[in-house]
Design a protein around this nucleic acid. Structure first.
Lengths: 338, 338
DNA sequence: GAACGCGTGGGTAACGTTACCCAAATCGGC
DNA sequence: GCCGATTTGGGTAACGTTACCCACGCGTTC
């Protein structure tokens, strides 16, 4: 039925073919110091001829695996591919390969996912908007060079790449208030001590004398989370006329909830998102959002990881400034607003 | 600055702690035959006490890595998370961990991504809609237990999980023709010998005496691909009144192109997609689509992979029957159609 | 009571690669 | 032409786990 599974070509086969030692081959593989151009070429030729490929497992036993682990909260958020585009671009010229793992529904599952990457001895770890406790991040960063994306907590153990959420949130809330809205609600991600967008929302509302109108639903940044968060709003009396969702994905869920409640956008309610994903730009949706450059963030994260793999131990913090992208989903509130 | 990096706990440490041999510990780890319940409990206790975690690299040297590799064409297609939900569900009860890799823009990059997974010695490989040649798939399947999702090619070396594209495409095209459309265009994925949906589209058109109206744009199933494919359509004379896109994601791109051309949906043009992603259901988009149960496909793929890892070598083919989900994006063509 | 089978557990040799160290050859400077 | 430095290449011992085989003790069967 199945053809015989020939033993995989090893470094020893290459060495024999090229008439050199395994050490020499290993040096060529790692572009290490101590091989003449002539030997290098002979080894390269032997590698091509035999179709040799190094085994990551064997490499991992002694040295590097040439693998970068990426932890994503989920695969549905359309903002993450932007980040990964940047990361891939940065890794393209290197021997490193990114592998992705999703964190799952809670901090415990996410912690297991991180473990899975550490067990596989990734050389570097990019954790996107993790929900595990800060102590856990520090612990992981003590084992593997790490970069955390999207969290404001500072650390000396890992690098941080993030968007200035305070600026971004302020832009949205001011935009909505500027349009004449007073009953602005917020849907955000439940994350103890990490709710910068929610806190900023509340602050800006207060600064405009709207502390009475503050209404927050903390769920998750998924489509379901946004749906759930927005579903209760129409039931309120009076119903908010604007919604600031902490992520486009959540805003999509809110759009669905609004439609189910028979509310028109933006005639009855003006929703806004965050991340400026490509779908937000889709004319049928045309969602006001906050642009943070995911590709730049991913590229930077990749660069920082490579630097750490090469030995840097000082912590770096890279901050991106967001910009408001107003679209048709936000407009002045209805006239009959009381 | 950084705390000392203690040597990671190994199986020998656990053995010492539990007062048994490393062999015994290894057996417990793999739930292998030959350990008494008493020994098992002692070993488990030692593992917990020391916080031991097996290293995948070392395991890979001799046995399994407990890793399932997943190859996705890209991360933006919202259908893929449905598949992965199913896969994760199937793997949840096992010790296996899924890692995701993206294939990149062309077959060559995709082939490298597959290599990366093979190099990392995944125990099983799920390739979603791969674009590499069939011979390459066979070669890979000779090295690693493999399941291919979404390709109609039969093979004795790997299992296949797929949707009945012929049924699905026929449903859409008949739906559009049934609404009164005659100038139905198709946007599909360029894939030599694999364009089942395109071929079915052409067949159904012929069966309705519309062979003159067949218009196909083969690009990629990305949003950009759909945009590009649909952009040329308005320029045609006469312009198609309906578009069957081979994927929702491509349909989203088409929606954008239609809007840019000032064409209304569905008043001027009726687009339809495939996959019935959650976004298609969003009221602002309300895209007619074909539902194929991604979760079931992913779950099945996972089950088949586990079976193959356990030793099955006969090939299995799992076919899902799709269903049409009509929504507001498709309606009868405008009256002034000539 | 010897032979046998079975359930447990251990000893050991791999697996493929790299880090470390050492040897030989070559080079450059006086 | 000699000495030290540098460049090149090899030998070998890990790395942590599992596959394989063997030993022991106990119960069961002729």
């Amino acid at each position: 039925m199945s053809t015989r599974q020939r033993r995989r070509v090893t470094i020893a086969d290459v060495a024999r073919q090229a008439g050199v030692s395994t050490t020499a081959v290993s040096k060529v593989l790692r572009s290490a110091y101590g091989v003449s151009p002539a030997t290098r070429d002979r080894v390269r030729a032997a590698i091509d001829e035999l179709g040799y490929r190094p085994r990551a497992a064997a490499r991992g036993m002694r040295g590097r695996t040439y693998t970068i682990g990426v932890l994503l909260p989920d695969l549905r958020n359309p903002f993450f591919p932007d980040i990964l585009d940047g990361l891939y671009e940065q890794l393209a010229a290197t021997d490193y390969q990114a592998i992705i793992v999703t964190g799952g529904p809670d901090a415990k599952a996410e912690s297991r996912a991180i473990d899975a990457l550490v067990d596989r001895q990734v050389d570097g770890l990019l954790m996107v908007a993790p929900r595990v406790a800060r102590a856990r991040l520090e612990e992981v960063a003590g084992q593997v060079p790490s970069v955390v994306l999207g969290l404001h907590e500072k650390s000396a153990r890992y690098d941080t790449v993030l968007d200035d959420d305070e600026v971004g949130a302020e832009l949205v809330v001011r935009h909505l208030i500027g349009l004449g809205h007073r009953r602005v609600a917020h849907i955000g991600r439940r994350a103890v001590g990490r709710e910068i967008r929610a806190a900023t929302y509340a602050r800006v509302m207060r600064e405009h004398g709207l502390e009475e109108e503050v209404a927050v639903a903390m769920t998750s940044c998924s489509e379901e989370g946004g749906h759930e968060g927005a579903r209760e709003l129409p039931a309120r009396s009076p119903c908010p006329t604007a919604i600031f969702a902490g992520a486009d994905q959540a805003a999509f869920g809110a759009l669905r909830a609004l439609h189910e409640a028979g509310l028109a956008v933006p005639a009855d309610v003006s929703p806004a998102g965050y991340d400026n994903t490509r779908l937000a730009a889709l004319s049928q949706i045309s969602l006001t959002s906050v642009d943070q450059d995911g590709a730049v963030m991913g590229r930077t994260a990749g660069r920082l990881l490579l630097e750490r793999v090469e030995g840097r131990t000082t912590a770096v913090r890279f901050l991106v400034t967001p910009a408001l992208v107003p679209r048709r989903s936000t407009a002045p509130p209805p006239d009959d607003v009381n």
